[in-house]
Design a protein around this nucleic acid. Structure first.
Lengths: 337, 337
DNA sequence: TAGCAAATTGACAGCGCTGTCATTCCTGCC
DNA sequence: GGCAGGAATGACAGCGCTGTCAATTTGCTA
């Protein structure tokens, strides 16, 4: 039979309420008592019943991770964030609930309301690109459901985690500049995504800092997919003056660029340098391996969830954490021809 | 304030217990009463409190989806299954919990036990490759937690969903044979995975049926990844007598094969036909688009969850459903040179 | 039309915890 | 040594629902 809090209380010779206090890390328990209760819990392998805690304590121990599976960056990216969030939730004995929401759907808010009234999550983790969708944020605030974001566009006093993508993008373009490239193209991601904007801004910044004139033909729209990378590259390779390097806003598109290079008989990196962003597993499997920016997605998911949980525990302790990036210089970039 | 069952009862002039009966689709309620209660629920937008239901009814309304994120087929595949499972759970007002478990880790069973004692899932959905891991199944039975599987290797009286992958593999190889190919290679997936075995068996079957001699050099080991596809292809292209067609056990490896073809100056499909398996989004983005077998992963996840939920509701009503496959003949395969 | 079984409905306790508030146990200090 | 005041602990009700079983109504049969 299940071990209950009452059983632990009896074993530790205290009242159930005291065990509850220890369980919830509440104040006003002497160290000796706390230790005794802890030992009893341990010895009996006590597991609190989440539903009972939830019912009595008016909280759910559930964190919902919201994402947009329509307009999403890539399933690998989301899967990694999910893993990170899950790890953090696990560590704090929270459970994670995942929730696809399609921003473009009319019933977006209705589905959010349903999530909240059906499951009462204690908090929510938002992932790109829905970190900055105003109606969503408004609704969450109305329901008083705290949230933390992964790579939000607006950096306010909100919780979550970011990376300085603009500086990272600038750094990778500077790497190309250092290699002697001057005609450097950029394949942009989906418009309105923060990722697209920051990476483009970093590209502009690096080019401007190098005193290079902007050639609008070298900035091509993509959509974060392999296919869009192929198409963007075809446009670039059809120019009278081809670029000698392409910085794609993510690895999938960069892979598409490398693919298209093959079609045009361009050898990477001899004739063309290519770099991406994200450091997906794919980038290491390519040949040559892709120069890219490591974005620690899993870690970022974990941090976002931790900030949320910390803030749930004691309001005001959550922050917006910035994680460092690191360039992964690999075989796909080389001296300009 | 929250609408409670009691409020609905008052509005419908019945006892709380009767509302509960309607909520749980129990027998012995007159149609008139049932209707009246339903109307009241609707009018008041009543949402039962899952924790209260769970606590009183000794069930959790939670379905856990277990997967191996170490040795997994691909995150896209898992993400699609997850979406399907989630859809089914939502429809039945269950919540879904995801759970990575590493089969190769020593604490596999401990983590499973923790999942069960912490969250008490009413049922579990298993995904490849952990659908047939004996210690896992044993433990689930010991805990009396019902499970349904996606593509289990053993077809017993268990619940879940399958596709006749062997016949699908045979069909796609026959497609190559129809195009006049005789030297057809196969890139195998991770050993022990059902998917690898069935697809290989289908390949053998088709070749044998066509009366073609087996050339062991044409069967190369891969690992379901893009990179392993590239390497396998390099082996194949280094043979004195190259294959004219390659059937890779999944799309990622097929993409790798196409990539390697470029390295060797082989034009797809002119010099080499390539086909894959899964019909991932990637397969349509490639140029030429990949001939492959459509595996309706999302649908399969949904079906597996539905069978599980059906069986939870009334024991014995869940089945092992077989879904049809369909060949997606696209640009990557053509007449033998 | 009485009489009985089956169908329908309801009363009530209790699932395992936590919030509230009362009680007891310590301190330090005059 | 006695007492105020805060720290530690406990008693008890109740969170919102369902299981059990009792009460009532209904539908038949004789």
């Amino acid at each position: 039979m299940r071990v209950r809090l009452e059983d632990v209380a009896r074993a530790a010779s205290v009242s159930p309420k005291t065990v509850s206090r220890v369980l919830n890390d509440e104040a006003n328990v002497t160290d000796a008592t706390r230790e005794r209760v802890r030992a009893a819990m341990e010895a009996m392998d006590y597991r609190p019943h989440p539903s009972a805690r939830s019912l009595a304590g008016n909280r759910s121990f559930v964190v919902a991770m919201l994402y947009d599976n329509n307009d999403n960056p890539s399933s690998t990216y989301l899967a990694e964030i999910q893993d990170g969030v899950l790890e953090a939730c696990d560590a704090h004995r929270y459970s994670m609930m995942v929730r696809p929401l399609r921003m473009r759907d009319g019933d977006f808010i209705r589905r959010l309301d349903a999530l909240i009234s059906d499951h009462h999550p204690d908090g929510v983790v938002l992932t790109p690109p829905i970190t900055d969708y105003a109606p969503l944020l408004k609704r969450l605030r109305e329901h008083k459901v705290p949230y933390a974001s992964v790579s939000p566009q607006r950096r306010g006093k909100n919780l979550g985690v970011t990376m300085d993508e603009q500086r990272a993008a600038r750094a990778i373009v500077e790497h190309l500049l250092d290699l002697g490239h001057r005609r450097i193209a950029h394949v942009v991601g989906i418009a309105n995504h923060g990722a697209s904007r920051w990476r483009l801004a970093g590209y502009h910044e690096a080019m401007a800092a190098a005193g290079l004139p902007e050639d609008p033909a070298l900035v091509v729209q993509g959509a974060f997919t392999f296919g869009s990378g192929v198409e963007a590259a075809r446009q670039l390779f059809s120019l009278r003056k081809r670029p000698t390097a392409v910085f794609a806003a993510n690895d999938d598109m960069a892979t598409g660029v490398m693919w298209a290079a093959g079609e045009y008989g361009l050898k990477v990196p001899h004739d063309l340098s290519v770099c991406g962003f994200d450091d997906t597993p794919l980038s290491r499997q390519l040949w040559p391996a892709l120069t890219t920016v490591q974005q620690p997605s899993r870690e970022m998911g974990k941090i976002a969830a931790e900030q949320l949980l910390s803030d749930l525990r004691s309001h005001g302790t959550g922050h917006l954490v910035q994680v460092p990036f690191s360039l992964q210089i690999r075989g796909s970039t080389a001296k300009a021809p």
